[in-house]
Computed example of a mutant assay.
Amino acid sequence: MANLSLYTTTAFLLLDSDGDRVISKYYQPPHAANAPTGQQAGLQGPPQLSAKNPFPTVKEQKSFERAVWEKTRKSTGDILLYDSHLVLFRPSLDVTLYVIGPGDENPLMLSGLMSAIYDSISLLLRGQVEKRAILENLDLVTLAIDECVDDGIILETDSTAIASRVSRPRPDVTELQINEQTIMNAYSTLRDKVAQRILQS
């Protein structure tokens, strides 16, 4: 039976060149902790939701991150199956981005998510997808990830839309021109009135 759940993403990781965590987001369906598995509910077939979070503690998360980094740091591909998890990764200068999903998940869907996250971060950081730029703009990068995926559900894969929603508003140039024009108009009006008063007296 195919996996028909919307909860397609287990984790998003961003690790530096030493395998240390820069950003990590682990997802679990909000109702999965209380949901019975397929066999417990008396249903046939595999369960749709796992009642157990695969990485409940920080220690287990960091151990998984280290193992995944060791597996992928010399790999030439961009996808692998590790410990019943589908791991997609994309190195960039001194960081590596990871999208992790269940082993039976559609790799093309996770690949689309990876591309969306990478491209939106690249747009926000003007092509500098590196540790220093990410740390300096951590708020934007985190918001971009949250715009892409929430609680393990893929929300958006259009990188331009994500970047436009997340980016800081720029000062409005037309407003500055209007203000300058207003000041110039006020100065001209004042000058004309002063000249008229001088001519009248």
Rank of each mutant, 00 (worst) to 15 (best):
A2V: 11
N3M: 06
N3C: 04
S5T: 15
T8C: 06
T8Q: 07
L14Y: 00
R21K: 14
R21F: 04
V22W: 08
K25S: 11
P29T: 07
A32Y: 03
A35T: 14
A41S: 14
Q44Y: 12
Q44N: 07
P46K: 01
P46F: 01
Q48A: 11
A51M: 03
N53K: 09
P54R: 02
P54W: 01
F55K: 07
T57F: 01
S63L: 13
E70F: 02
K71E: 09
T72I: 03
R73P: 00
R73T: 10
S75G: 12
D78R: 08
D78I: 08
I79L: 06
D83E: 11
H85T: 13
V87Q: 00
L88Q: 10
S92C: 14
D94M: 08
V99A: 11
G101E: 10
G103P: 05
E105M: 06
E105W: 00
L108W: 08
G112K: 03
L113H: 03
L113A: 05
M114D: 14
D119H: 13
D119Y: 04
S120A: 12
I121T: 07
S122Y: 11
S122P: 13
L124F: 12
R126D: 10
G127E: 03
G127I: 07
Q128R: 14
I134A: 07
I134H: 04
I134D: 08
T142Q: 11
L143C: 08
A144G: 12
I145G: 09
I145L: 15
I145D: 09
D150Q: 10
D151Y: 01
I154K: 00
T160G: 13
S164F: 02
S167L: 07
R168E: 12
R168W: 02
E175F: 04
E175W: 07
N179C: 07
N179S: 12
T182F: 11
T182H: 15
T182A: 14
A186Q: 05
R191M: 03
D192A: 12
K193C: 03
K193H: 10
V194N: 13
A195R: 11
R197F: 10
I198R: 09
L199I: 09
